[in-house]
Amino acid sequence: MDPFQVCKKTRRLKGKLADICNNKPGLLKQIALGISLGQTECQYQFRFRRWNCTSARKSIRKVLLSDTRETGFVNALIAAGMTYQITRACTTGDLIGCSCDRKMKKNRKHRRKQKLEPMPDGEWEWEGCGGENVEFGVKKCKDYLDTRYRRRSDMKTLVKLHNYAAGRWAVKNYMRLECKCHGLSGSCTLKTCWRKLPNFREVGNRLKERFDGAAKVIAGNDGQSFIPEGETIKPPGKMDLVYSEDSQNYCAANSSLGSFGTQGRICDDRSLGEEGCGILCCGRGFRKFYKTERKNCKCKFEWCCEVKCEKCNVTRAISTCL
Score class of each variant (00 low, 15 high):
1 M>G: 13
12 R>L: 13
15 G>F: 04
16 K>C: 06
22 N>C: 12
26 G>V: 08
27 L>I: 15
28 L>V: 02
29 K>G: 04
33 L>Q: 13
34 G>Y: 09
35 I>C: 05
47 R>K: 12
57 R>E: 14
59 S>R: 13
60 I>M: 05
63 V>G: 09
63 V>E: 05
63 V>K: 02
63 V>Y: 08
64 L>T: 07
68 T>C: 08
68 T>F: 08
71 T>C: 03
76 A>L: 01
84 Y>L: 08
87 T>A: 10
88 R>N: 14
89 A>Q: 03
90 C>E: 03
106 K>V: 15
110 H>L: 10
127 E>C: 13
127 E>W: 15
130 G>I: 05
136 F>D: 01
136 F>G: 02
141 C>D: 01
143 D>C: 08
144 Y>V: 03
148 R>D: 01
151 R>H: 07
153 S>T: 10
153 S>H: 06
163 N>G: 01
166 A>Y: 00
167 G>E: 00
169 W>P: 00
171 V>T: 09
171 V>W: 00
174 Y>S: 10
176 R>L: 08
178 E>S: 15
181 C>V: 11
182 H>G: 13
187 S>F: 13
189 T>E: 07
192 T>A: 07
193 C>W: 03
193 C>M: 11
196 K>M: 07
203 V>C: 01
206 R>T: 06
206 R>D: 02
207 L>K: 06
209 E>T: 14
217 V>S: 01
218 I>D: 00
218 I>W: 03
220 G>S: 02
221 N>D: 05
226 F>W: 11
229 E>V: 13
229 E>D: 08
232 T>A: 13
233 I>V: 11
234 K>G: 00
244 S>I: 04
245 E>D: 10
253 A>I: 12
268 D>K: 10
268 D>T: 08
271 S>A: 06
280 L>T: 12
280 L>K: 15
285 G>Y: 11
288 K>E: 09
294 R>W: 06
295 K>D: 04
298 K>W: 09
306 E>Y: 10
314 V>L: 06
317 A>H: 00
